Amino acid sequence: MSKKQILLINDMAGYGKVATAAMLPILSYLGHPVYNLPTALVSNTLDYGKFKILETTDYIKDVFPVWKELGFHFDAIATGFIVSERQAKIVADYCREQASLGTAIFVDPIMGDEGKLYNGVTAATINSMREMISVADLIFPNYTEACYLTSGKYNADGVSFEEAKRLLDDLRLIGTKSALITSIVVDGTPSVAGYNHVTDKYFSLPYTEIPVHFPGTGDIFSAILIGHLLDGELLIPSTQKAMDGVYKLIDLNKDNKDKNRGIPLEKYLGIL
Rank of each mutant, 00 (worst) to 15 (best):
D58T: 12
R261G: 11
Y15P: 09
K165Q: 15
F74W: 05
E114A: 02
A193N: 00
T176A: 05
K3Q: 14
Y247P: 04
N260P: 11
L46C: 12
K248Y: 15
P33C: 01
G120D: 01
P206F: 15
I60S: 07
K165M: 13
V246Q: 00
T239S: 01
K257E: 15
M132G: 13
I226T: 09
K68C: 13
D200K: 15
L205V: 10
V159L: 13
S222D: 11
P109T: 08
G120R: 14
K116T: 15
T189H: 07
Y35V: 06
T182N: 13
K201E: 12
T57P: 04
K89H: 14
S43C: 11
G49M: 01
F81W: 05
D255N: 15
C147N: 02
I90C: 03
A156K: 11
L30Y: 07
S151P: 04
V192H: 00
G188A: 06
A21I: 05
L230C: 12
S43L: 06
V42D: 08
M23K: 03
K89V: 13
S134L: 04
N119A: 09
E114V: 05
I224W: 01
T217G: 03
K201H: 09
T57N: 06
Q5I: 10
L249A: 01
G16F: 07
T79M: 06
I105N: 05
F74H: 00
N196E: 04
Y15L: 08
L249S: 02
G112S: 08
A164W: 04
K17D: 11
S151D: 08
G152A: 10
L225H: 11
A164P: 01
I250Q: 04
L229T: 12
S28H: 05
T208Q: 12
T125K: 12
N256L: 01
Y148G: 12
G245P: 01
W67M: 00
G80A: 08
E162C: 11
A242P: 00
R130T: 13
S43W: 13
N119L: 10
S134H: 09
N155D: 06
Y15G: 08
D137C: 09
F106A: 02
T217H: 00
L205D: 05
K89F: 09
V198C: 05
K61L: 15
V192S: 03
K165I: 13
T208I: 14
W67Q: 05
I210W: 07
K254L: 01
T122L: 15
G112L: 07
P109M: 01
L272H: 11
P33Y: 09
K52I: 13
L272P: 11
I250S: 02
N36V: 13
L225V: 07
A40S: 05
E266M: 10
L167P: 08
T103R: 03
